[in-house]
Write a protein that binds this DNA or RNA. Sequence first.
DNA 1: ATCTTTGCAAAGCTTTTGCAAGCTT
DNA 2: AAGCTTGCAAAAGCTTTGCAAAGAT
Lengths: 139, 139
Amino acid sequence: MPTGVDAAALTGRPGLRLTGPRRAVLEAVAAAATPFTAEELAQSLPGVGRATVFRTIRLLQDLDILCRVPLEDGSIRYQLSRGDHHHHLVCSQCGAVGEFDDPELDRLIQRNARRAGFTLASHSLELYGSCRACSPGRG
Amino acid sequence: MPTGVDAAALTGRPGLRLTGPRRAVLEAVAAAATPFTAEELAQSLPGVGRATVFRTIRLLQDLDILCRVPLEDGSIRYQLSRGDHHHHLVCSQCGAVGEFDDPELDRLIQRNARRAGFTLASHSLELYGSCRACSPGRG
DNA sequence: ATCTTTGCAAAGCTTTTGCAAGCTT
DNA sequence: AAGCTTGCAAAAGCTTTGCAAAGAT
């Protein structure tokens, strides 16, 4: 398992076909060092039609292979999803995006929803700031 | 104080002018019962230029008068901001958006950031589900 | 053989921009 | 008077769609 995703992600799904373009997108996505925009992905794959890139991004999101990362400025980037449920740590300096999960945090979120008489279906949490490498050494 | 915002929000800010169009947008925003899209706001103000509506939305966001509410499907709505720091409870059924704040939650978020070696600048948390009115009675 | 997927180009949305005219202070 | 703001219309992003050809199982 080189990167965690490969063609197998699409094989075996009834009604889904593993095609050249999809394989190419999958490889590019798996190889990406940092989160990318749809535009960047499309540009890195000149041989794949633009529409196909967008369609595949959507497909991979539905399959939980790719996750959408909303930046602070409202733009959207994508990153290979490394876990089921998680949150993002977005570095405003270098663009790196880390993931984390915290059951306690989720519990607290659930509690707030309940308090408001809200039946929670899902939630999204993004943290923005500077990653370790980009943070000024504080002491 | 009828709704919490009025022309005063723009008066007194050096370099900012209180114009008819802005007054109109401000009133529409204050009167809105539910979160709205830029498109809806523009349509409700036929007398105000589209560009002005967008520019004013941005201005009001910068002034913390309006807050951006990202929906689950990626679309954006806006709502009068009722507090400084807060999170959203978005009802997928009726579209209502509530706000809440929880210092404990923020502390936990801060802790997760620190653990990851992250210097936190800001964060955004949106909860999606069904509000009390739209939730099926459970028991 | 059947049903899915692709690519292209056009169409769709949403938001921004340039600039002269019009307001506010 | 000085300079912020408006409106229009064009331009700019970004994403989706229609459809015939190509591909996968």
